[in-house]
Amino acid sequence: MIPSSFDYVAVDSADAAIGALTEHGDEAKLMAGGHSLIPLMKFRLANPTVVIDIGRVNDLSYIRDAGDHVAIGALTRHMAVETSDLLKADVPLLAHCASQVGDPSVRHRGTIGGSLAHADAASDLPAALLALGGSVMVKGPNGEREVKADDLFVGFLENSLADDEMITEVRVPKATGAGWSYQKFNRRAQDWAIVGVAAVLNGSAGVSLVNMASTPLRAAGVEEALASGASHADAAQRAADGGSPPEDLNGDAEYRTHLAKVLVQRALTEAESRKS
C-alpha cells in the first residue's frame, strides 16, 4: 500500500500534458482522477517514474450539445455525467451508467476519460460507450484523431493510444427516445460488476458486456440475432458468444456465462419497455 517513489508534474493544458508525455515516454503516466492508477501504484503493480497530473485541466471538463451527439470533456467527473440534464434527456444510458460507478467519493474523483483510457473490462462506462456506438477524440504531438469505441479497447487494461497521446473528448450519439437498459450484477453497491450488460434499442440494437472477456466487449452474437429477427429470449442465449469470461471468487466461467444470458434478457426487456 506504499507506492514506489516517482516524480510528480502537474499540467494545466492538454498540450502541456502531451509535451510531458513526449518528454518522459513510457516511464510516465497521466493521472486524471487517480482512482484506478493510484491503487495500482500502491500495490506496486504500476510503477511509473513520472506522474503527470491532468486533474486540473479544467477546460477539458464540460458536457456540450454538439448537434447529433453530446461532447464530453475527458476530465469530466462521473458525478457530472450522472447529474447532467442534457445527458439524462439525450443519452440516459450514459448518465445512468455513471451513477453506477463505485460510490459517491469515487464518482467525485473519477473521470470519464480516465475510465475509458483504463480500458477495464469490469468498468461500466466502456460498455456504455460500446453500446451507444460512441467514440473518443485522441490528441498527440501530431494533432487530433477520432477513435471509435470498437477500436479503443485492445487488450487487458490496454487501449489503442500511443504513449504520447491522450483522450481529450468523448462523443456519444444522441439516443433520445431510444430504449435502454443497464444491468449491473454485483455483490455490494460500490463494487465493479461481476457481469454487466448495456443495451440500446434505437432502430438497431447495441448490446455490450462488462467483465465477460479481458476487454470491454460488444455482444456481437446478441446484436446479430436481433438484427435477423430473433426474439429477445433467443438472442439472449447468444450472450456469451465471443466472450472469454474471467474466473474469480465471484464467478467461474459457467456462472458468468449463465449470468450474461439472464442479464441480456433483462436488459432487452427493460430497454423495450422504455422505448418511446
Binding site: 455483490r187 465471484n250 464467478g251 467461474d252 456462472y255 449463465h258
Partner: peptide
Amino acid sequence: ASPMRVWK
C-alpha cells in the same frame, strides 16, 4: 451464500 454458490 454467494450468488454463484446458491445458483449452483
